[in-house]
């Protein structure tokens, strides 16, 4: 359920938060999206869009951090070896 796609906010207009709207770029295509649920949105933010509404401003810092953590954990763990017990993936579980 619930196809939602990230897009980059190009513009924000509208005084009243419930009616706030703007253009969002989805990898080269653009559509007018409502920001009623993300009234604090700024141009340049990435938002997650569903049914014409931004459901959330995507936390880019968190995205980068979690991705880097995942890749680091996976990289430390080369195939054939057992996972390094200090990697984040093994934080709660030492056994392979």
């Amino acid at each position: 359920m619930c196809l939602a796609i990230p897009g980059k906010v190009l513009s924000v207009e509208g005084e009243q938060p419930a009616l706030r709207r703007g253009r969002v770029d989805f990898g080269g295509i653009r559509k007018e999206i409502r920001f009623a649920f993300t009234p604090e949105v700024q141009p340049g933010n990435y938002v997650l869009v569903h049914a014409g509404f931004a459901l959330r401003i995507i936390d880019e810092a968190e995205a980068e951090r979690s991705q880097a953590a995942l890749e680091e954990a996976l990289a430390e763990w080369t195939p054939g070896d057992s996972p390094a017990s200090n990697s984040s993936l093994d934080a709660q579980d030492g056994s392979p």
Partner: peptide, 23 residues
Amino acid sequence: MKLLTDYRKTSTVAQLARAIQCA
């Protein structure tokens, strides 16, 4: 498309699949 393609990386997918097999 940023924030989509990053999460489709073949190498990461393969590494995760191995990690699951191991876990």
